[in-house]
Every structure is written in C-alpha cells, then in structure tokens.
Design a binder for these strands. Structure first.
Lengths: 211, 211
DNA sequence: AGTTAATTACAACGATCAGTGTAGTTCCGC
DNA sequence: GCGGAACTACACTGATCGTTGTAATTAACT
C-alpha cells in the first residue's frame, strides 16, 4: 500500500467507524435522539473528529443514507447475477426467486433498515439531499425490473411492464415481510422464509407463463 | 343538546383541535421536531392547556396514534361493507376491489399517514404503548382477510390463507402506491389509480377463480 | 351579579444538544 | 528525536424545549 494511503487508511477506518456508529444509533433511536456525542463515543472517536470529518449532523445523516443505499444496490446487483442468471427451465424459477429474496433479506443485516433510513432522510431532516435521492431509491426496483424483463424474454415469465412487475415482486416478498415483522428480523427469523415463499408463489401465479 | 354537554362540547372541540394540530405537525415534521408550543399555537390553545389535557408529550403522541388507528379501522370496515358485499358475479370483482382501494386511499386523507404514525410510535418514542399496539395494527389486515374469505366462500376467489391473501392484496395496492409515491398523494394524485388498478389485476391473477 | 371552574399569558427551571475554539497530546514520516 | 498533522479533552455559547407554577382573565352557571 502506498505511503499516502497509510494515513488515509487510518482515516478511512475512523470514517467507517463513525458511519457505522451513526447508522446504528439513527436506526435504533432516530435522528434527533442520536447525539453527536453518543455517536462519537460509540465510534470511539472524539466529538470534534466527527465534526472534522463530516461538518455537521445532517451531512452525516446524508452520508449514512447514501452509504447504505450504495451497499444495498450493490448487494442486489451481485445477488441477481448469482441467483437469477442462466435460467432456462420454469421449474427452477420459484427456487431461484426464493433464494434471491432470502439472500437479500439476510445478507443485508436487514434491508428494512434501508427503507427506514430513507424515511429518516425524508422526514427527520427536512429534505436533505441536493443529491439524486429519488434516483438512488429507485435503482433497486429497476435492477430487479431488468432481470424480470430478461426472464420474460427467455419465455419464463409473462410481463408487460417490468418496472411494475418488479414493484409487485418486492411488495409481495420484502414488503409483506417488513410490514408483518418490522425491522426485527435479525437475519435468522424463522418466520421470514415462509412469507417469502408464499410471496414468490403469488407472484408466479400473477406473472408466470403457465396459466 | 343537554346543558351538561355544552361545557364538554367546548372541551371536546379543544381536544379535537389539539389532536388535529398534533397529528399534522407530527406527520409533517416528526415527533421531536414538533414542539408543544407549536402544537398549541396551531390548535389556538395555550401551551398550558395541552398539558392539562394530555399530561405530557408522549401521551399526546399515543393518543394521536390510537385516534388515527381507530379512524382507519372504522373507515375500512365501513368501506368494506359498502363496496364488497353481495357480490355474485366474478366480473364485478375487479371494479369493486378498485373502488374499495381508491376509497381507502383517498377517504383517509392518506392512509400512508397511518403507517407513518405507526413508525413514529415505534421509533421516535421508544415503545410508548402499554396499549394493544400490535393488535390494532393488525386489525385492518384481518378485516380485509375476513372479507376476502367470504368472497372465496362465494366462489369468486381461490384463497387458502385469507390473512396472507389480505397482506398480498394490501401490499400490491397500498404498499406499491405508498412506496412509489410516498405520503405525497394528496387525495387527488392521478398516478394513484393506475397503480391500484394494476395491483388489483395482479391480485386477481394470483387469487382469481378463473385460471 | 357573583361564584366557580376553565383557560390564558408569562416566567422560569433544568436538561439536552449542535457546533466552535483551543490547548494539549499522540502519532507518523523523516 | 524532530516537526507537523491528526486527534483528543474540555470548556463554552446559544438555542430549543419539556414541564411546572402562578397570577390574571375569561367563560359558565345559578
């Protein structure tokens, strides 16, 4: 590693620690109830360093949201590639979709956190992003939509509007799981899988080729 | 009206004004960012009166949440009765379900508010209710589930688990509308209806009798 | 009108917290 | 081991806010 980086390395570690601490506290207690002092303490960093790194609290929140958003979209893309490519037989479809959904629901400690943080970003702090907020929020849906469209082109699904189908898929799987179980699905809740399975089945009844 | 009521009348009016003001501010700005002073001002009442009526801020929030929850369940029950009874022909089903969903989505200024307030109740204020929180949160789903079960018994739907079917219906209609449009659907957003229609159609493909 | 209860206006307390300034301390490359 | 940058400890300001107490004011009822 280049010598210029050893410094940044330490820096990057602290950055990550602060972001992780902030994310945990924001999710657990909300934005207003999470003081910079508490975040700094949890990250084992002085309060002043948090300000030196991020400037102010809203910027910190914005960074956390962007961070987890990027992480989510990357996980989704990777998992799509690993579980929903090269499918040819319709019989494999249900298992593949279930595997995909379960991986997303658990790999991300819980993807409900993302929805939560989006809400935090919108409500708690008036309208934080000069950034492309909506754009990033829609990225996961569109990635799923593209893959569903590919499956439709392969003759495995019957889809007119891929983006809508993606929203329906997400609603039937993650949406139902989150609204029923809250963000409390600590990656190992046995109640998640049956919900996902039934959501996938309902989706296939609505969008499957065999009718 | 009895004379004993004129006093209570004024009292009840103030109560309602405070609750309305609190609801609006909580939804717009979140719990912590809504000061009692601001709520009192909006309700055109002195700060002291708010405390005399509700004791403290968390109790006020709890009351608001219970309030809007009761209102939602009542609206759902009434609307179910008005739009989804005495159906015999499968052809009427799509229109009836769309009508039901649109009524809910608009009658309640927006039912997304309810989800929002539920979240406020959970996150903002640690865990406020000694009340039956989950019970009330599930009531709407179960009411819809019972009606869907009735439609299944009438031979119009093919449903194994009514509660699950209700969750799927809600996810495909309100869930998608809320996640796409946020709480910004001010009762007249033209983008709501197409989403609802497509959600109902997907639901009927998954749970309809004709396959 | 007069008594009583409800309501207001107002001040004040104590706590929390974002954000800043600074002086000292640690760490790192040289 | 020196010099400078990163970091910490700490104190402080200014603001917001929940909550309470109280005296004055208004409204309700007889």
């Amino acid at each position: 590693m280049p010598p210029t980086k050893t410094l940044r390395e330490g820096s990057a570690k602290k950055r990550a620690a602060i972001l992780a601490a902030a994310q945990e506290l924001f999710l657990a207690n909300g934005f207003d109830r999470s003081s910079i002092d508490a975040i700094a303490a949890r990250a084992k960093v002085s309060t002043r360093t948090v300000y030196d790194y991020f400037g102010d609290k809203r910027t910190l929140l914005r960074t956390v949201v962007e961070n987890i958003g990027q992480s989510l979209i990357a996980t989704i893309q990777r998992t799509l590639d690993e579980t929903l490519t090269d499918l040819t037989e319709a019989g494999e479809l249900e298992d593949a979709l279930v595997t995909f959904s379960m991986r997303i629901a658990t790999d991300m400690l819980n993807s409900a956190d993302y929805a939560m943080l989006q809400r935090l970003g919108q409500t708690e702090s008036d309208h934080l992003p000069p950034r492309d907020d909506r754009a990033m929020a829609n990225a996961p849906d569109e990635a799923v939509g593209e893959r569903l469209a590919a499956l439709a082109r392969a003759g495995l699904l019957d889809i007119a509007d891929p983006r809508l189908a993606a929203d329906h898929f997400i609603a039937l799987t993650f949406g139902v799981a989150i609204s029923r179980l809250g963000s409390a699905n600590a990656a190992g809740d046995a109640r998640v899988r049956p919900l996902i399975v039934e959501g996938v089945r309902a989706f296939l009844r609505a969008y499957g080729k065999e009718r």
